[in-house]
Nucleic acid binder design. Sequence first.
DNA 1: TGACCCATGTCAGCATCCTGACATACGTTG
DNA 2: CAACGTATGTCAGGATGCTGACATGGGTCA
Lengths: 148, 148
Amino acid sequence: MGQDGVDLGTSLGYLLKEASSALRAAMEEVLRPLGMSVTHYACLELLAQRPGLSNSELARGAFVTRQTMNVLLQSLERDGYVTRPAEAPVGKALPARLTPLGRRSLAEATAAVRSVEVRMLSGMTGAERSEASRLLRSMVRSLRERRS
Amino acid sequence: MGQDGVDLGTSLGYLLKEASSALRAAMEEVLRPLGMSVTHYACLELLAQRPGLSNSELARGAFVTRQTMNVLLQSLERDGYVTRPAEAPVGKALPARLTPLGRRSLAEATAAVRSVEVRMLSGMTGAERSEASRLLRSMVRSLRERRS
DNA sequence: TGACCCATGTCAGCATCCTGACATACGTTG
DNA sequence: CAACGTATGTCAGGATGCTGACATGGGTCA
């Protein structure tokens, strides 16, 4: 049922999607026991590295829309993982910050996600990892520039 | 509004998602004028390279569920891009095949998508491309094996 | 200062996709 | 042969995410 080894395997675009899909599936698998989704985790991780990020900035960083990130932030705020001021200090952007509870929750998730990334890179040398990083960055840059 | 250059950029997982997201956005941009979605195109491309693929096999190849691929196949069949036998020759799987119309439609889409992939790889040498291919394949393999 | 443009937060409406479940068909194993 | 496990196509049901739109705040430039 389904012979393997086709020409599609030569397309870098397909390989990119395949790797990204496999990574997301593996992350969801280890995050589910913690009651966390990938977007959920991404939001917390972004806030840990860049405290004070606004809703829109978090949305862009987690690759979802502002609306989706907004409902997520509301639930995170309701459950005490993040805090946002009632009024915007400047403009309309509400800077979000992790609470101690949010930081603890993130620590668990980070450990789980880290193990997945370690597994993903298990067959690669340090030089290969930085080479992969460099090549992926090059692809992103090429795709973004010259956007009609 | 949003300083750049953070630590998240060092995570290969994040870079993977970033590249995949940028590629998908670029593909949707060039496919929209043709009235085609990325999944739509992926289905046609899979059928061109592997005639006779079943609904479930197409779903796995395009990274969607059987149900989603099924409704897509129904619309493609209704519009005359693919054909499926009324009854399964063996088992329950209905092998799908491209019609001449489907092949023509795919040809347009392939040209558009190819241009995107060319742009993505514009800053890379041939050796770097095959290296990227090898590394991505390694990541997929590591993520798939040892699935608890 | 006032006109313009862009970014943000938020609301409603809708499309999309998935989860869960069922009946069927085939291969395998006792 | 019969029971089991696996894979398929298909049917609702519901959750999730996006598109479109609006009002607001801030920066820019004449």
